[in-house]
Write a protein that binds this DNA or RNA. Structure first.
Lengths: 230, 230
DNA sequence: ATCATTGCTGACAATTCTTGTCAGTACTAT
DNA sequence: ATAGTACTGACAAGAATTGTCAGCAATGAT
């Protein structure tokens, strides 16, 4: 059996089991080794399938990970749709895709009448200035930002000078026509802004930076007189 | 992107689309060639996923296919937070309030670890040009728009001339520094755009307009050569 | 009736992915 | 402590995947 099939089968299998199932069991069922199942589970969870694995127990699907029934007001649904359209216009392509998927998930989680209203929302956010696509993965930047990983970037500044730097990403600002990463630059020992489109290369380093991101943001906000974040 | 991921993504993508989608579109979205999508579709349908392909039309997913309840991915939560921030910056104050409430609802509905990540999202959308507050209730406009009510507006045009008109609101566009209502104007018997800040008075009429909003939008989109909505 | 669009298939070679194996770590329940 | 289990890394043989190109068939619009 090919991997693609197997993944779908694992989903089916997990859905019908209430109690934890071991990788060993699934492996026998699908005639592969447990090692393969472990690899499959990584793929599935990475794709958002709510499977939970616990050492000494086994795998179980989604108990407590279901989306609880949520009620939204009409205004909230309109805000959501408009916001997701704005993200699709102005954020990087992975975030844009996430916005689309979110629309799908919410629309199936709410009652049909609200779902219809939601999907038919006619609020738009057209953007005439298209933002340049980046040479580097913005998803990687966001990932490093979330987890406080240091990153190494090759950056071409305004004058065209290209340098390598190790920086600590602390926030991303989405302006009308560009995206900016604010980070602590180890080389300059100061906060710096980097336009994502000017990044030539990017690598997430295995090392994390120590100070809490929120604290660095506060410091940066004070230096730059941005009261909202200080 | 690996095939295994792609198959799950295709399911996600198909679930959120009501209208048929072409292999070409999916291919671009997932960054592969259409040929690959055709192969994927064979695999999916062979595994029992109810996707229907019709020549000259596209693919559409049958009702009733139910993936397991899925939690939001980290990207989705970040998209959501960024989007709600954009709405707070650029939409009217009622929608901004709705955006805030939405953040609250979602954050209590998801597991604690995701909630923390969600609320700590450091993606921002600062807006330097503040949009003028309206003299009329934009919430009323949106309400009329949703339900296809006619509205009567007192409008001051560019030249400062003030007129009363009865219009059929069909969509709202949120630009960088202003908000626009597109509507069918009974007086002019044509589509017109109205900047919300120039509306002096507004009244929702009890009467609804007959043609389907989506149809009017399509007509307007063709006249104005906006392929996305046509 | 014609045309553009779209689904769908076959074949091939370069590339990429997948798998089992083995060895080891860390966590859980008992 | 112990057994059971999740999880990770590395490697190399084998298998699957992909893009390309070429063509056919069905659909919907005109």
């Amino acid at each position: 059996m090919k991997r693609a099939d197997r993944l779908i089968q694992i989903i089916e299998l997990m859905r019908r089991e209430r109690r934890p199932v071991t990788a060993q069991y699934i492996a026998e069922e699908l005639e592969v080794t447990p090692r393969t199942i472990y690899r499959d589970m990584v793929t599935l969870t990475a794709s958002g399938v709510p499977i939970d694995g616990e050492a000494g127990v086994g795998y179980i699907m989604g108990d407590g990970y279901h989306m609880p029934p949520m009620m939204f007001t009409e205004d909230e649904l309109e805000a959501l749709m408009l916001g997701m359209r704005m993200v699709q216009e102005r954020a990087d392509k992975d975030l844009a895709k996430a916005a689309k998927n979110l629309i799908g998930k919410i629309s199936v989680a709410i009652p049909d009448d609200l779902s219809a209203l939601f999907l038919n929302t006619d609020l738009y956010a057209p953007q005439f200035v298209k933002i340049k696509e980046e040479k580097v993965s913005v998803a990687d930047i966001r990932h490093a930002l979330r987890r406080q990983f240091k990153i190494k970037i090759t950056y071409a500044d305004v004058k065209g000078e290209v340098t390598d730097r190790i920086v600590w990403p602390i926030l991303m600002a989405h302006f009308y026509d560009n995206r900016n990463l604010v980070a602590w630059c180890e080389k300059r020992q100061a906060f710096r802004s980097f336009r994502t489109e000017r990044m030539v290369k990017l690598k997430i380093l295995p090392e994390k930076y120590k100070p809490y991101r929120k604290k660095l943001i506060k410091q940066w906000a004070i230096e730059n007189q941005i009261p909202d974040l200080a």
